[in-house]
Design a binder for these strands. Structure first.
Lengths: 137, 137
DNA sequence: TATTGTTATACTCTATAACTATA
DNA sequence: TATAGTTATAGAGTATAACAATA
């Protein structure tokens, strides 16, 4: 039933827009996401970060420039391949990441608390399926 | 558990990005969404459309201008209040809307087909809850 | 004076194409 | 010649502030 797809597409688009409006952070959602990727992947190349974030390298370059200005990350030359760059999160970046994630998710967390237990369980189960869809093909 | 919120926020943001990349339409997702709102709300003011789409009036004005150029909608003066404008979908706009919705949701529909029946049921149940969250507060 | 819609302006996020340096 | 990253440029989407017309 295509209407299932329609309903889900609509709901995801709307909720995404709603969440963006709730930002209570100095970092934009995208900056936060990239900072998280840098933390997760360890010293990683911009190319690897772009692949993980499912965006093109120029988009990552721009965000890395912003994060470098704040001192949350640093770029190091790759000793083995002069074309590559390794990106690392700083100690301050790590601390910031934790604080900002809490703030970013605060609104959604509040909303989830208002749901019935059943509905919360439903969304908890749905989240990994949605994530898998996002990573498809 | 805030990590529930985090997992869900991440999944929604990623899937939204993924869906946007799959556009196979002449209309952008936002244009399509506004066109759908005009169809749903019938002759409606830009203000009402903005409220329904959860965006500010200037954003709607811009999109209405684009849709007017294509002939999918038309603006009429409100006979009772000269400050207001009524926006209507045209016959061609209606036809286009149906075709474009199918195209827009085609990718997600394919992905849903690949899931197990249980997972599809899960997402079918989750969609209205997600939509409700998006409309909260 | 308040409301509706529009215009002006700016910022975020993303992409493609062109360029630089290295392999 | 191919690859990694960056720079240049453009387009989509959104917001706030200022403005015009009408109530």
């Amino acid at each position: 039933m295509p209407s299932d797809a329609h309903a889900l597409a609509l709901a995801v688009a709307r909720l995404n827009r709603r969440m963006r409006r709730e930002r209570r952070s100095e970092l934009t959602p995208t900056q936060l996401s990239v900072l998280g990727a840098v933390a997760l992947l360890g010293p990683a190349t911009p190319g690897a970060i772009a692949a993980h974030e499912q965006v093109k390298p120029p988009s990552v370059t721009r965000i890395l420039n912003q994060l470098t200005e704040t001192g949350y990350i640093s770029r190091l030359p790759d000793p083995e391949d002069g074309r590559q760059v390794l990106v690392e999160i700083s100690a301050g970046g790590h601390l910031w990441l934790q604080q900002e994630r809490k703030r970013r998710d605060a609104w959604l967390h509040e909303q989830l608390q208002k749901l019935h237990g059943e509905e919360r369980d439903l969304l908890r189960a749905a989240a990994p399926v949605l994530k898998r869809l996002a990573e498809a093909e």
